[in-house]
Design a protein around this nucleic acid. Structure first.
Lengths: 234, 234
DNA sequence: TACTTCTGCGATCGGCGTTCGCAGTATCTG
DNA sequence: CAGATACTGCGAACGCCGATCGCAGAAGTA
């Protein structure tokens, strides 16, 4: 029994026909994880919590997944399945990329816990690959080598996540901040009052009142368009 | 005893004169954490490990820091103290920002574990604030409101971290990958072989051989410059 | 001297990811 | 049909983690 475990979950067969029928499957597992993360954040996605929400026991999950990180891989790929590719293939490369960026933004806004995952290297599953292929396809006619295209896409995704982060930070102003964020805002307020760092103080003051100057959607489109144009020659 | 604990560590006094002299201080604590993280990654920064490396006991650390996250805040701010502001204030806003971006890149390359921290919202300490103030100062003459400037800086930082991530992923090709990354590369290789996702396959193939086309430094400068020019009007 | 306020820290708690081994069940083989 | 095989769920436990409590002792104050 070689028991070769160093294999991506996407290359491992889900079932091999023998034995009793499993109580659920990878996708149901991913669904439970996503529901938990959507409701209470990524930290709430515990093996025990997921098992409970499936009416199972913690140890059972390891029949479907080798580690918790693999469960999160499943979750990430599951939400990437939400991406729609309607209306693609008809425009200039920049318009194509903008459409794809909008879709990615939608996923991030619906599942903010993705921001906590994208830290290390983002996991790549089947649905993520479809998205990546579309992005690279949009750049096909440009005279860039593979490395440059990959970098371009990763920069684009970084841009999208940064913008989503900013938007979510704004949105959180209305609700109750998570208490550790209060401390940081308090510190920033203190610093603004001391008079050092005048540019920070000015920026914070200016940023407050202006709320509905432009819709976040328009802003997103404008920034992404400009950055891409500057980045990839025009 | 109100015991108000919801205060940023930067607003809490480090000492209040009474009692026996502490065995170390916040900065020594941060130093120990940084050394551990540099050597073995962020996950190795355990309260127990840090305490051991200080010749102390885990519970003692809580005399200096309220939580592990605060320890990491100290670490982040400590490495931000490495940033040099020499040669600033003499150029156009774009040149200024490029200098600042280069400094930030240097910090990230020297302390890759920062990539694991910047997930949530990046903590802001005194040294981070100095850096932020400089960035905003570089944008002072541009006709943007505070929110736009802040967004510009956060987008810039996202860009920098994305580029550093790409460079580190490259560098890791020569060494031994962390074993879970092997699985992902294996999966990518498999997918490239199946023929679906042709753009991904092509990009991966093209990316391999081209190594020393341009130095990473030049590439960094070029990409950041272009993105900034496109982003902030010109 | 008496009191206050800090210090280091042993002991411990609850929670986590993960492993082991067993009992039970479905399929395959002959 | 009978035996082997390969899976299933999962109770119990391990080791590690962040964090808390409370006490003994030291430094400063009055």
């Amino acid at each position: 029994m070689p028991e070769q475990p160093e294999l991506s979950i996407w290359l491992r067969p889900e079932r091999s026909g023998r034995g009793p029928a499993p109580g659920f499957d990878r996708d149901r597992l991913a669904q439970a994880g996503v529901e938990l993360a959507d409701a209470e954040g990524l930290a709430a996605v515990t093996m025990r919590a997921v098992a409970t929400s499936l009416g199972s026991a913690p140890a059972s999950l390891y029949r479907y997944v080798a580690t918790r990180d693999e469960l999160i891989e499943l979750m990430v790929d599951r939400v990437n399945a939400e991406i729609s590719y309607d209306g693609l293939g008809a425009g200039e490369w920049l318009d194509e990329l903008l459409l794809l960026a909008r879709q990615a933004r939608g996923v991030l806004l619906r599942h903010p816990w993705l921001l906590d995952v994208f830290n290390g290297t983002a996991p790549v599953g089947p649905h993520t690959l479809v998205f990546l292929d579309r992005c690279l396809g949009a750049l096909a006619d440009l005279s860039l080598d593979g490395r440059q295209k990959l970098e371009g896409v990763s920069v684009l995704m970084a841009l999208v996540t940064a913008l989503v982060r900013a938007q979510l930070a704004d949105r959180e102003g209305a609700e109750e901040p998570p208490l550790w964020r209060r401390a940081q805002q308090q510190y920033l307020a203190h610093v603004a009052a001391t008079g050092e760092h005048p540019h920070v103080a000015a920026a914070l003051l200016e940023a407050r009142p202006l709320k509905g100057s432009k819709s976040p959607d328009e802003l997103f489109d404008r920034i992404v368009t400009r950055a891409l144009r500057g980045l990839l020659g025009f």
